[in-house]
Amino acid sequence: MIELEGISKTYAKSAVKAVDGLSLKVDNGEIFGFLGPNGAGKTTTIKLLTGVLRADSGSAKVDGIDMAASPLEAKRRIGYVTDNPEIFARLKAAEYLNFVADVYGVDSATRQERIGKYAGLLGIKDVLNASIGSYSHGMKQKLLVTGSLIHDPENWILDEPMVGLDPKSAFSLKEIMRERAASGKLVFFSTHVMEVAEKLCDRLAIINKGKIVFTGTLAELKAREGSDESLESIFLELVDDGEEAAS
Protein backbone atom coordinates (compact mmCIF):
# COMPACT_ATOMS: atom_id res chain seq x y z
CA MET A 1 0.00 0.00 0.00
CA ILE A 2 1.25 3.48 -0.76
CA GLU A 3 0.02 6.72 0.67
CA LEU A 4 0.94 10.28 -0.18
CA GLU A 5 -0.34 12.95 2.19
CA GLY A 6 -0.21 16.65 1.25
CA ILE A 7 3.15 16.21 -0.44
CA SER A 8 4.83 19.20 -2.13
CA LYS A 9 8.09 19.72 -3.96
CA THR A 10 9.77 22.76 -5.48
CA TYR A 11 13.10 22.16 -7.23
CA ALA A 12 16.08 24.14 -6.01
CA LYS A 13 16.44 26.12 -9.22
CA SER A 14 12.75 26.79 -9.77
CA ALA A 15 10.15 29.00 -8.21
CA VAL A 16 7.23 26.82 -9.35
CA LYS A 17 5.91 23.91 -7.30
CA ALA A 18 6.43 20.73 -9.32
CA VAL A 19 4.08 18.89 -6.97
CA ASP A 20 1.64 20.89 -4.90
CA GLY A 21 -0.06 19.42 -1.82
CA LEU A 22 -0.73 16.08 -3.48
CA SER A 23 -2.57 13.31 -1.62
CA LEU A 24 -3.11 9.82 -2.93
CA LYS A 25 -3.75 6.35 -1.57
CA VAL A 26 -3.26 3.12 -3.51
CA ASP A 27 -4.22 -0.25 -2.03
CA ASN A 28 -2.67 -3.67 -2.42
CA GLY A 29 -3.99 -5.70 -5.32
CA GLU A 30 -4.61 -2.61 -7.42
CA ILE A 31 -3.21 -1.62 -10.78
CA PHE A 32 -3.09 2.14 -10.51
CA GLY A 33 -2.48 4.38 -13.51
CA PHE A 34 -0.95 7.82 -13.05
CA LEU A 35 -1.73 10.10 -15.99
CA GLY A 36 -0.85 13.64 -16.89
CA PRO A 37 0.65 15.78 -19.63
CA ASN A 38 4.40 16.40 -19.93
CA GLY A 39 5.72 18.40 -17.00
CA ALA A 40 2.59 17.78 -14.92
CA GLY A 41 4.58 16.30 -12.02
CA LYS A 42 4.26 12.54 -12.63
CA THR A 43 7.97 11.72 -12.44
CA THR A 44 8.50 14.10 -9.51
CA THR A 45 5.68 12.38 -7.61
CA ILE A 46 7.19 8.97 -8.34
CA LYS A 47 10.62 10.20 -7.23
CA LEU A 48 9.12 11.46 -3.98
CA LEU A 49 7.36 8.16 -3.50
CA THR A 50 10.53 6.13 -4.07
CA GLY A 51 12.75 8.32 -1.88
CA VAL A 52 14.79 9.70 -4.79
CA LEU A 53 13.70 13.24 -3.91
CA ARG A 54 13.08 14.80 -0.52
CA ALA A 55 9.66 16.43 -0.10
CA ASP A 56 9.38 20.02 1.10
CA SER A 57 6.27 19.11 3.05
CA GLY A 58 3.85 16.21 3.46
CA SER A 59 4.64 12.53 3.76
CA ALA A 60 5.08 9.44 1.60
CA LYS A 61 4.36 6.07 3.19
CA VAL A 62 4.96 2.60 1.82
CA ASP A 63 3.07 -0.17 3.61
CA GLY A 64 2.61 2.31 6.45
CA ILE A 65 6.34 3.04 6.69
CA ASP A 66 7.29 6.70 6.38
CA MET A 67 9.85 7.21 3.61
CA ALA A 68 11.49 10.13 5.41
CA ALA A 69 11.68 8.42 8.80
CA SER A 70 12.68 4.88 7.73
CA PRO A 71 13.91 5.14 4.14
CA LEU A 72 15.69 1.77 4.00
CA GLU A 73 12.69 -0.13 5.34
CA ALA A 74 10.37 1.65 2.93
CA LYS A 75 12.65 1.19 -0.08
CA ARG A 76 12.99 -2.55 0.55
CA ARG A 77 9.27 -2.83 -0.18
CA ILE A 78 9.51 -1.10 -3.53
CA GLY A 79 10.56 -2.20 -7.00
CA TYR A 80 11.21 0.86 -9.15
CA VAL A 81 11.54 1.22 -12.92
CA THR A 82 12.96 4.65 -13.72
CA ASP A 83 11.90 6.67 -16.75
CA ASN A 84 15.52 6.83 -17.95
CA PRO A 85 17.06 3.45 -18.75
CA GLU A 86 20.34 5.07 -19.87
CA ILE A 87 22.31 3.99 -16.81
CA PHE A 88 25.32 1.76 -16.26
CA ALA A 89 26.09 1.40 -19.99
CA ARG A 90 29.51 -0.01 -19.10
CA LEU A 91 28.14 -2.86 -17.00
CA LYS A 92 27.04 -6.21 -18.39
CA ALA A 93 23.39 -7.05 -17.88
CA ALA A 94 24.29 -9.96 -15.58
CA GLU A 95 26.51 -7.68 -13.49
CA TYR A 96 23.70 -5.14 -13.16
CA LEU A 97 21.20 -7.79 -12.06
CA ASN A 98 23.66 -9.26 -9.56
CA PHE A 99 24.28 -5.78 -8.17
CA VAL A 100 20.57 -5.14 -7.65
CA ALA A 101 20.04 -8.61 -6.15
CA ASP A 102 22.98 -8.12 -3.77
CA VAL A 103 21.61 -4.77 -2.62
CA TYR A 104 18.23 -6.37 -1.85
CA GLY A 105 19.92 -9.40 -0.29
CA VAL A 106 18.41 -11.98 -2.67
CA ASP A 107 20.07 -15.39 -2.39
CA SER A 108 21.63 -17.15 -5.37
CA ALA A 109 18.88 -19.72 -5.99
CA THR A 110 16.05 -17.19 -5.77
CA ARG A 111 17.73 -14.67 -8.05
CA GLN A 112 18.47 -17.37 -10.62
CA GLU A 113 14.83 -18.43 -10.62
CA ARG A 114 13.42 -14.89 -10.89
CA ILE A 115 15.91 -13.71 -13.48
CA GLY A 116 15.22 -16.83 -15.53
CA LYS A 117 11.49 -16.16 -15.32
CA TYR A 118 11.29 -12.44 -16.04
CA ALA A 119 14.22 -12.19 -18.46
CA GLY A 120 12.63 -15.12 -20.33
CA LEU A 121 9.20 -13.50 -20.42
CA LEU A 122 10.63 -10.22 -21.67
CA GLY A 123 12.97 -11.86 -24.20
CA ILE A 124 16.38 -10.82 -22.87
CA LYS A 125 17.48 -14.09 -21.33
CA ASP A 126 19.80 -14.83 -24.25
CA VAL A 127 21.66 -11.51 -24.01
CA LEU A 128 22.37 -11.31 -20.29
CA ASN A 129 26.07 -11.80 -21.00
CA ALA A 130 26.19 -8.60 -23.12
CA SER A 131 27.11 -5.07 -22.15
CA ILE A 132 24.13 -2.81 -21.36
CA GLY A 133 25.65 -0.21 -23.68
CA SER A 134 25.01 -2.52 -26.63
CA TYR A 135 21.30 -2.83 -25.75
CA SER A 136 18.54 -0.95 -27.55
CA HIS A 137 16.33 1.41 -25.55
CA GLY A 138 13.62 -1.23 -25.26
CA MET A 139 16.05 -3.90 -24.10
CA LYS A 140 17.38 -1.58 -21.40
CA GLN A 141 13.79 -0.99 -20.31
CA LYS A 142 13.24 -4.75 -20.07
CA LEU A 143 16.41 -5.14 -18.04
CA LEU A 144 15.24 -2.48 -15.59
CA VAL A 145 11.89 -4.27 -15.29
CA THR A 146 13.66 -7.58 -14.60
CA GLY A 147 15.90 -5.90 -12.02
CA SER A 148 12.93 -4.26 -10.30
CA LEU A 149 11.26 -7.64 -9.75
CA ILE A 150 14.32 -9.52 -8.54
CA HIS A 151 13.29 -9.11 -4.86
CA ASP A 152 9.59 -9.70 -5.52
CA PRO A 153 8.49 -6.32 -4.12
CA GLU A 154 5.09 -5.72 -2.56
CA ASN A 155 4.87 -2.37 -4.35
CA TRP A 156 5.91 -2.11 -7.98
CA ILE A 157 6.35 1.44 -9.25
CA LEU A 158 7.01 2.07 -12.93
CA ASP A 159 7.63 5.40 -14.64
CA GLU A 160 6.56 5.28 -18.30
CA PRO A 161 7.32 1.55 -18.60
CA MET A 162 5.84 1.08 -22.09
CA VAL A 163 8.21 3.50 -23.83
CA GLY A 164 10.39 1.67 -26.33
CA LEU A 165 8.83 -1.74 -25.81
CA ASP A 166 7.84 -3.87 -28.79
CA PRO A 167 4.21 -5.14 -28.82
CA LYS A 168 5.14 -8.61 -27.55
CA SER A 169 7.13 -7.25 -24.64
CA ALA A 170 4.45 -4.65 -23.85
CA PHE A 171 1.94 -7.51 -23.76
CA SER A 172 4.23 -9.54 -21.46
CA LEU A 173 4.68 -6.53 -19.18
CA LYS A 174 0.92 -6.03 -18.92
CA GLU A 175 0.53 -9.73 -18.11
CA ILE A 176 3.12 -9.46 -15.35
CA MET A 177 1.26 -6.43 -13.96
CA ARG A 178 -2.02 -8.32 -13.91
CA GLU A 179 -0.40 -11.38 -12.36
CA ARG A 180 1.12 -9.31 -9.55
CA ALA A 181 -2.11 -7.44 -8.83
CA ALA A 182 -3.98 -10.76 -8.76
CA SER A 183 -1.56 -12.02 -6.13
CA GLY A 184 -2.38 -9.02 -3.91
CA LYS A 185 0.57 -6.83 -4.83
CA LEU A 186 0.37 -3.19 -5.80
CA VAL A 187 1.24 -1.90 -9.28
CA PHE A 188 1.59 1.86 -9.75
CA PHE A 189 2.63 3.18 -13.15
CA SER A 190 2.67 6.42 -15.07
CA THR A 191 1.84 6.51 -18.74
CA HIS A 192 0.92 8.68 -21.69
CA VAL A 193 -0.79 5.81 -23.45
CA MET A 194 -4.49 6.23 -22.68
CA GLU A 195 -5.49 2.89 -24.21
CA VAL A 196 -3.17 1.06 -21.83
CA ALA A 197 -4.55 2.93 -18.83
CA GLU A 198 -8.11 2.36 -20.01
CA LYS A 199 -7.69 -1.40 -20.38
CA LEU A 200 -5.31 -2.15 -17.54
CA CYS A 201 -6.04 0.07 -14.56
CA ASP A 202 -8.36 -0.66 -11.68
CA ARG A 203 -8.11 2.98 -10.67
CA LEU A 204 -6.31 6.01 -11.99
CA ALA A 205 -5.30 9.51 -11.08
CA ILE A 206 -4.86 12.49 -13.37
CA ILE A 207 -2.33 15.12 -12.42
CA ASN A 208 -1.96 18.54 -13.98
CA LYS A 209 0.39 21.36 -12.94
CA GLY A 210 1.41 19.45 -9.83
CA LYS A 211 -2.14 18.89 -8.52
CA ILE A 212 -4.42 15.89 -8.69
CA VAL A 213 -7.49 16.71 -10.78
CA PHE A 214 -9.11 13.31 -10.50
CA THR A 215 -8.74 10.03 -8.60
CA GLY A 216 -11.00 7.03 -9.05
CA THR A 217 -12.15 4.37 -11.50
CA LEU A 218 -12.76 5.03 -15.17
CA ALA A 219 -16.50 4.60 -14.58
CA GLU A 220 -16.38 7.21 -11.82
CA LEU A 221 -14.50 9.57 -14.11
CA LYS A 222 -17.08 9.15 -16.87
CA ALA A 223 -19.91 9.67 -14.40
CA ARG A 224 -18.32 12.78 -12.95
CA GLU A 225 -17.71 14.30 -16.37
CA GLY A 226 -21.11 13.16 -17.65
CA SER A 227 -19.46 11.71 -20.70
CA ASP A 228 -19.30 8.30 -22.30
CA GLU A 229 -16.36 9.17 -24.46
CA SER A 230 -12.96 7.49 -24.38
CA LEU A 231 -10.46 8.16 -21.59
CA GLU A 232 -8.36 10.07 -24.12
CA SER A 233 -11.14 12.59 -24.84
CA ILE A 234 -11.99 13.06 -21.17
CA PHE A 235 -8.31 13.40 -20.30
CA LEU A 236 -7.80 16.08 -22.95
CA GLU A 237 -10.83 18.01 -21.70
CA LEU A 238 -9.67 17.83 -18.10
CA VAL A 239 -6.17 18.96 -18.97
CA ASP A 240 -7.53 21.76 -21.19
CA ASP A 241 -9.80 22.91 -18.35
CA GLY A 242 -6.77 23.04 -16.13
CA GLU A 243 -4.91 25.16 -18.69
CA GLU A 244 -7.85 27.58 -19.03
CA ALA A 245 -8.30 27.85 -15.28
CA ALA A 246 -4.63 28.63 -14.93
CA SER A 247 -4.71 31.33 -17.60
Binding site: N98, I115, D126, L128
Partner: peptide, 20 residues
Protein backbone atom coordinates in the same frame (compact mmCIF):
# COMPACT_ATOMS: atom_id res chain seq x y z
CA UNK B 1 24.75 -8.67 -29.62
CA UNK B 2 26.09 -12.14 -29.19
CA UNK B 3 23.08 -14.24 -28.26
CA UNK B 4 23.21 -17.37 -26.17
CA UNK B 5 21.11 -20.38 -27.09
CA UNK B 6 18.51 -21.58 -24.57
CA UNK B 7 20.81 -24.12 -22.90
CA UNK B 8 23.72 -21.72 -22.67
CA UNK B 9 21.47 -18.99 -21.24
CA UNK B 10 20.26 -21.37 -18.52
CA UNK B 11 23.75 -22.43 -17.57
CA UNK B 12 24.96 -18.81 -17.76
CA UNK B 13 22.35 -17.76 -15.19
CA UNK B 14 23.23 -20.71 -12.95
CA UNK B 15 26.93 -19.98 -13.21
CA UNK B 16 26.99 -16.17 -13.03
CA UNK B 17 24.06 -15.14 -10.86
CA UNK B 18 25.67 -15.59 -7.47
CA UNK B 19 25.09 -13.60 -4.33
CA UNK B 20 27.75 -11.54 -2.63
Amino acid sequence: LKKLDAGDARSFIGRRMRSS
